[in-house]
Design a protein around this nucleic acid. Structure first.
Lengths: 349, 349
DNA sequence: TTGTAAGCGTTATCAC
DNA sequence: GTGATAACGCTTACAA
């Protein structure tokens, strides 16, 4: 730690100035290519490593991008982050990742931490919405670009990468209705979050369009985890007038409910159709496999990173009005196929 | 960006010195509590944020921990990293995460990047092994602590957090044998990796112990992804003398093979028993649910982070010989229960 | 093509 | 309790 080699050490050893060494190491064209070679060789031999802090301090830029997410251990998040890491890394940027774990206080603290870490830019999926306008402003006010994805602030005109959640939910609900379902339960998460609110509204729109009266009782709320599914399944089975379909806002809870239904002896989709959201691997592997929306995690992550990086490297500018809406197809699978010959079938993978 | 407030600005405004401001902001007990209050108020009012780079440059420490993984989008990795992030964040550290994506070259580059980023410590799961001894030394030689987890360098005496993979594989194989299976296929990954090599050896040991001759033909290699499973399932079904069990080295491929088997009309576990490894959610939700090993991702991540943080904060020292072996229980489930009354049943969750 | 020198914003070491 | 001052290692006008 103490014996770090600096450009001064190299300079001294070679009888040059630190400035020349600095330039050579950064491949400055002004430097003679022979001296460059010598300097590089010496740097290598002496075990030199550039001190990022000195450099950052001087240049006022960090080549670091912050990522804020509610939790990082879901198939969607880890896949999106994986894409971001690849893009960032290829462009010479590092990623600092923080999760807010459903705590608004931690989310605020995280934003401040990244702010103090002087990240060059930020990609964020929100866990709650209140603090958005308040706290991201400390960043945007100083010109630090922020790109939102997945859970984005509604209303505001921040750049964001999303799918049309309402339309996707509308499509899946219409499909269920087309399969003859009349009492469709929608299992949703915290509707303070953008995606869940949007999906709920798509569900409602479809009912309206089909002339099915909206029934508040049929909307259930949970944290959408595997653990809470058995309880949800119970509540569905105990309803007066048993529902004939479940549209869950993610695949994990769709799969877990489906399992619970089967354990009670119900047949899927005969007794109750089940649809999810995300196209997680589990939706493809369950028996029956589960109708869902293909939520393009990798593409969302890659797109968010590309926009941010292009902005940071000056290749293109991020407009506040940029709103990228990616496609998200309905994948009809066995768990909702109640009609024998169904030409709505589109894809199984 | 340009109008950053510094401790000098605060000092000037308050008629104090920068040193005093610095001390007050760090809650140095030598400073009068009244001046502290004034300084804090001014800092807040002026929108001051500490410059980490100046601080790091001066203190020669970064409060940053590097994490190296093969890929971060698996249930195991994202859960382990989630735990690490929580521990690190609670201790005031940030995480820089890099993935090597199966490329040894990128793994080496990643290690250098983290090295140049002056991380205070490192947690690493390797994608290949060659470079371990070569490249991690640039860190350890300078006293930067490294804790390995999951994919660890074999032979070396680096601190690492693991389970006894061989014993777990032994247990699962013995269980299959106990269920009357005679021809057990083992589906493994790249055996250059520690965990797969160990699991394979546990499988062999169990066969040996049970007097079943080891058959090289029954060991299949793949990347253990969902995509390669159909091909693997085909190869198993086309073998002379159909196997009566599959022990896959992860749950994803176990689940995907199980699905493929069922599509061919086989019954599980009657025609072929299926076991996985990890206790991913999918193993619990599949029908039938899948016998597996509970690989404690969160605990592994939390333990690795705790050890590293305790070392960094001087609470306890990380000895090179530290090797923490966590428990990993066999979870017997439906996919391997071929005998009617089986007292080996331990748990379904 | 190379050198000089002035910062970048903090913190540590002395002083007082 | 507080202040001066000197690093920390790098980049970049400006000179030469």
């Amino acid at each position: 730690m103490s014996g770090e080699v600096t450009i001064y050490d190299i300079a001294e050893k070679l009888g040059l100035s630190a400035a020349t060494v600095s330039r050579a190491l950064k491949d400055n064209p002004a430097i003679n290519s022979n001296t460059k070679k010598k300097i590089r060789a010496a740097a290598e031999a002496m075990g030199y490593r550039s001190n990022r802090f000195a450099s950052n301090l001087r240049k006022r830029t960090t080549n670091t991008i912050g990522v804020v997410v509610p939790r990082l251990n879901s198939n969607f998040m880890s896949t999106a982050i994986s894409a971001m890491e690849k893009m960032a890394s290829d462009a010479g940027y590092s990623l600092i990742i923080v999760q807010s774990l459903e705590s608004p206080a931690k989310e605020i603290a995280n934003i401040r931490t990244l702010f103090n870490s002087r990240v060059d830019g930020l990609m964020a999926a929100l866990s709650s919405e209140q603090e958005t306008d308040i706290d991201f402003r400390i960043l945007t006010d100083r010109g630090i670009p922020v790109v939102f994805f997945d859970q984005v602030p509604s209303g505001s005109s921040q750049p964001c990468i999303i799918i049309d959640n309402a339309q996707a939910a509308h499509a899946i609900t219409m499909h269920l209705i087309g399969q003859g379902c009349k009492r469709i339960v929608h299992l949703t998460g915290n509707v303070k979050r953008f995606v869940y609110r949007e999906r709920l509204s798509g569900y409602k729109m479809a009912l309206l369009e089909a002339g099915i009266p909206f029934d508040e009782e049929l909307v259930l709320h949970s944290d959408l985890t595997e653990l809470s599914a058995p309880d949800i399944a119970n509540r569905i089975l105990e309803m007066d007038g048993r529902p004939d379909a479940l549209f869950a806002a993610n695949d994990m809870s769709a799969a877990a409910c489906l399992t619970a239904f089967r354990e009670r002896g119900l047949s899927i989709p005969g007794d109750i159709a089940v649809a999810g959201f995300n196209n997680d691997p589990i939706s493809r592997l369950m028996q029956p496999n589960i109708t869902t929306i293909n939520y393009p995690a990798y593409q969302i992550g890659a797109t968010a990173a590309t926009y941010l990086l292009n902005h940071l490297t000056g290749k293109s500018s991020l407009q506040a009005t940029n709103k990228v809406i990616l496609h998200a197809d309905l994948l009809v699978r066995e768990s909702t196929m109640r009609l024998p010959h169904n030409d709505q079938l589109r894809s199984v993978f």
